[in-house]
């Protein structure tokens, strides 16, 4: 097997993902509450409600406690002079190679939670695909974007 790429994403990503997990959980719970209420009104069999409640406990647990850790552990990236290599995935591990000469442009993206923690995502676009490196330190993301766009500019071939 090939050696994995070296760099990890910021460990503050864990906090961010947990927060967004909590937000999602609240949304999920309010939907579940409405569903339970409706089920009660329409006299649906009680086992449906039980299943719903069990799911409403399990999913937030996974999304707040388990998945962020696994996801953070599985995320690796490396930006070298001639190519970008990404590795991610909890259950299905995906590894992607993007040659620098194929990069068309680079974005940094920052939602409200990411901004609060001074993080940003870098999105690399080729002519056909786009690849996101999530939750990097703001300064690092900025540097990376600069670095990639500088290297990508060397490319002469066009589509």
């Amino acid at each position: 097997m090939l050696a994995s790429p070296h760099k990890r994403i910021s460990n503050k990503a864990l906090t961010v993902w947990r927060i967004s997990g909590v937000i999602k959980a609240f949304i999920g719970w309010s939907v579940t509450a409405v569903a339970l209420f409706l089920l009660h009104i329409f006299d649906a069999p009680s086992w449906i409600s039980v299943i719903l409640i069990v799911l409403a406990v399990i999913f937030p647990c996974l999304h707040i406690l388990v998945f962020p850790v696994l996801r953070w552990r599985s995320w690796r990236y490396e930006v070298r002079e001639e190519e970008i290599e990404l590795e991610e995935g909890i259950f299905i591990k995906t590894r992607t190679l993007v040659p620098m000469v194929r990069v068309q442009h680079v974005d940094t993206r920052q939602g409200p939670i990411l901004r609060r923690y001074k993080l940003a995502s870098v999105v690399v676009h080729t002519a056909a695909t786009s690849h996101e490196i999530p939750a990097l330190e703001e300064t690092e993301a900025e540097e990376l974007r600069f670095f990639i766009s500088k290297l990508a500019r060397v490319a002469e071939e066009d589509v």
């Binding site: 995935g89 591990k93 995906t94 590894r95």
Partner: peptide, 16 residues
């Protein structure tokens, strides 16, 4: 080779 924009490999638990 020079037209391939990106290449990726995937490995699921069962495949592994």
């Amino acid at each position: 080779k020079n037209r391939i924009q990106s290449l990726s490999l995937q490995e699921s638990f069962f495949q592994k």
